[in-house]
Design a protein around this nucleic acid. Structure first.
Lengths: 142, 142
DNA sequence: CATAAATTGCGACAAAGTTGCAAAAATAAT
DNA sequence: ATTATTTTTGCAACTTTGTCGCAATTTATG
């Protein structure tokens, strides 16, 4: 299904209106790289900042979008129902975020971990950080 | 070793001064729960906000402190050299952060993953989120 | 204890995020 | 379709969070 059609479906399911602003915010998030809030606001440049914030808040409540810690700043990306589920490796030097492909063994493991702690798991994130192949020669010590 | 003595050691190793402000920031972070920046500033109430920020920035550079995504906000806690290494489960309802005990198998797995992606791994985080045992009965759907 | 170097607090500022409310757009009803 | 109702948007004001330069203070050096 097209992401835009899927958005429409999710919004209607929850009694929320399908609006141009929300479609634009989704479209801006469809690129490969996760975005900071600031970057997202810039890419939605016809839409008021407050509206972008409200859309993101709604999208988070509806699990359309997730927030991840990339180095110092947090970034936003479409969540598992819209993208393939995956994790991230962030380069501490250049800030690039590399998506890691999913591994069922790891997923199963985390599931069991949650059970052991009596937690109803809704979502999870793994964030690796270090130096990417490109930056390794450049940086002596961080 | 006492955390305060360890702080002194790390600071001197990197040619940084040992100051009252930095000791106070460390002390405030020594509780069990990770803190938001705002909470930390409040607990260091004799110390100027700017100084708290500068101390945290320094502590992050020296890997004394790490930042984790807990629900919507980020929180700060002492990093592995000061606490036992561990991961977190955050309750989406009450916001409580439960520390998860370390598992060598998981750690080894993540290490291999980084190698596969040609990444020099400096640190990593696993964040589970869901409902804690206490909140599960309270909340129908989130 | 004196000197040099680094850190702190202050105030002013920039950036990020929130809120109330009237206008506009989306949904529901006729 | 057109109108009525509900929701969302943009705007502007505002709060919170985070940053920066600089003089005063504290820390380290000899």
């Amino acid at each position: 299904m097209q992401p835009s059609a899927q958005l429409e479906q999710v919004l209607k399911q929850h009694g929320q209106s399908v609006t141009a602003a929300r479609q634009a915010v989704l479209a801006a998030l469809q690129g490969q790289e996760p975005l900071t809030m600031g970057e997202l606001v810039i890419r939605c440049n016809d839409i008021d900042r407050a509206t972008v914030y409200r859309s993101v808040a709604l999208f988070e409540r509806l699990s359309i979008v997730q927030r991840l810690q990339a180095g110092w700043k947090y970034k936003l990306e479409l969540s598992d129902a819209f993208h393939e589920h995956h994790h991230h490796a962030t380069c501490l030097h250049c800030g690039q975020v590399v998506p890691l492909s999913e591994d069922p063994k790891l997923e199963a493991y985390l599931h069991d971990l949650a059970v052991a702690y009596n937690f109803t798991l809704r979502k999870h994130q793994i964030e690796l950080s270090g130096l990417c192949a490109t930056c390794q020669p450049t940086v002596g010590s961080l």
